[in-house]
Amino acid sequence: MTETTDARDSATAWRPSAIELERRAFRKRQTGRSVLVSALSTIVLAGLLAWALIGSPGWAQVQQTFFDPTVALASLPRILEGLWLNIQVLVAASIGVVVFALVLATLRTLRGPVFFPLRALAAGYTDLFRGVPLIIVLYLIGYGVPGLDFFPRMPVAFWGTIALILTYSAYVSEVFRAGIEAVHPSQRLAARSLGLSHGQTMRRIVLPQAFRKVTPALMNDFVAMQKDVGLISVLGAVDAVRAAQIETAHYFNFTPYVVAGLLFVLLAWPMIRLTDWVSARTRAREQVGSIV
């Protein structure tokens, strides 16, 4: 009570001093100059790029083959249809990645000699799948596994999703593991001292804190996967990229590829902005009270 009234009293009594007013004026001038300089340099750079591009000898030809509005409009429905498949694959793969990566990360953090084989298996897995290019995994899974005649016939998009899960889980499990190890051991100690089991401690104490620590890194991996879902086209799945390829062949024009590219950017953009925002917020919270 007394604190708040004190604060109000001092707030009404306080007037900025001459020195402070002069400083504020200076900061304002500095800000104005910064805005002006950045605006000017942006305009100059954009002008230079446009001049170089449009002024190039082949521009008219390139514009026709890559940026033809009629072809863009005509190919859009087919490409959008393909993009819907990409989105479905993306959603399924994301869920699969989170689950499988969590299992892998948990296996790698298990202690005790009994778990050595599981630990080694998980470590070997992440080493292997972080090393193999995704496109090779796609071929191996997409053409190799159905060839075993062991599973019922599935659409190629299904095998593409499996390949994405296998590859991305290797990366994401390492992110999870880093998060798990970043939770201070005293948290585990406190939980176990309360009588919580190892599993309860992981679920209730360690993983929630680990998740929070690695959210920006996880979102970044999600953004990367968002564009890599386009690679399932190599298996023949008619996704946005494959649809663009078909349209390109139809019109003898590369514009459908540009359309597909723009659609992927549009798809990823909200997530990219969100990732930046979350990272900035995390950084701000960790560096609270500092201006450098």
Partner: peptide, 17 residues
Amino acid sequence: DDVRARIGVVFQHYNLF
């Protein structure tokens, strides 16, 4: 775990979650 559940512990650095 059963034994720990019967004993309360308080740490130097609180260790709240």
